[in-house]
Design a protein around this nucleic acid. Sequence first.
RNA 1: GCCCCCAUCGUCUAGUGGCCCAGGACGCGACCCUUUCAAGGUCGAGAUCGCGGGUUCGAAUCCCGCUGGGGGUACCA
Length: 473
Amino acid sequence: MTSPRVRFAPSPTGSLHVGGARTALYNWLFARRHSGIFVLRIEDTDVERSRRELTDQILDAMTWLGLTWDEGPYFQSERSAIYAAAAGRLLAEGRAYRAFETADELEAARKAAEAAGKVYRYGGSGRSLPREESDRRAAAGEKFVIRLRMPDEPIVVQDAVQGRAEFLPDALDDFILVRSDGNPVYHFTVCVDDVEMGITHVIRGVDHLPNTPKHVALFRALGAEPPVFAHLGMILGPDGKKLSKRHGAAGAEEFRAAGYLPEALVNFLALLGWSPGEDRERMSLQEMISLFSLERIGPSPSRFDHEKLTWLNGQFLQAVAPGRLLTLLEPFGLPARDRETLERAVALHLSRCRTLRELAQALRIYGDDPTEFEAAGMKKFGKPELMTSLRALASRLAAVEPFAHAKMEDVARALAAETGVSLGSLAQPARLALTGSLASPPLFEMIEVLGKETTLRRILAFADRIEGRAGAS
RNA sequence: GCCCCCAUCGUCUAGUGGCCCAGGACGCGACCCUUUCAAGGUCGAGAUCGCGGGUUCGAAUCCCGCUGGGGGUACCA
């Protein structure tokens, strides 16, 4: 393959959702795999709905994901002259024509057809209007749209993913290229741009498949060979319905905010519809590039499995260099401790967390003393009769110097043996006192990082609290 | 309504006529490790390959129909 050119063409009417992110990824992967060019084009011809800040947000998300573009971003809103010229050419060549029906007239005709139970098709007079009359009416200032003269033969779309689809001429209308206000319509700008930008492969969602025959006809009218099409199956929510905010996070930015790593999201998205074979699951971008091919993309829709993403994220999280981890954690808030303490704490909690957010949350115990204690734990270990040995543990811990976990454990085991209690009935109340929870890293390693002062303070406060409560009731 | 697409464990998928009474991963269960929770390791349950017809010596793999799901049908993208 000689240097393909692909593009990602989002319209800034929303943020980058996972479907779009996956489309961008596949285009990017394809370009990188074949040393091609990845073009970014912003389809903002719908002035009403397009917003500049959404464009910025999309670019941010792509940068975050590592999907860097080689050309662009081009803005369709800045390319009106190109579309106007193309429309003029088509008109002059008779491949397109003016139609003078108003939107209201068309609406009425559509309604009438529906009421009669018939399939609506554009049946206006524009198609057969003599050139001179068309020119005259346009010159007189009459409003018109420009429509494409569709060929009267079937159009076959040979799709790299979906296979062959044939569309009969009856199903294809002379669709509008340019609105009566002079603004070009999506189908038109896409094709003009794809031709103009030399796009060789169009990789996009299947929702565009039914539009593809229009595009094929348009490419031909424009005098260009249609590109190779590859239509990707939809990404559905866990319930099989269209993925939306209703299913939780659906935008790349939301996953970022929820503490997901870009490499995990990208890996997960890559596997949604594409498989490298050989049971490969975890891959770096580089590996994906070398393995990627259109042939291995499946045609069926897939559901977004949040659980698997989270698992993958956990996998990637474990692999992040410890130094980089604190930087990544910063936006999620870190307790006011020195860097070394934080790094030791991270090392202790990393394997217990699957997202940055979870990790940051876990690290909070190195900041403020716990004020809430989990109910199940209190019921089991918040008993006054356990406080005696807990206090004993505290006083033995106070004597440990240097404050190292191996020594603490020896001391604790000795205490347990002497008093005939299990290590667990010593450790669990301590864990509760120190973290408010029954789940934590190995107790003494955590205590070492927490520090002697904090440890003793929390244990004593907890014992006071339990005994005080018992005395009051 | 009409047009188009899709259909393998709950989910993502491998599989392109015999290697498959279907492999991997997530999730789930059990066990090991263990002061708790994870991580990790081992094992396991889980799919008559949506249904019904063909074609073939032989079909998850090819063909047809049905059913189910999705998408499109705009002077939206």
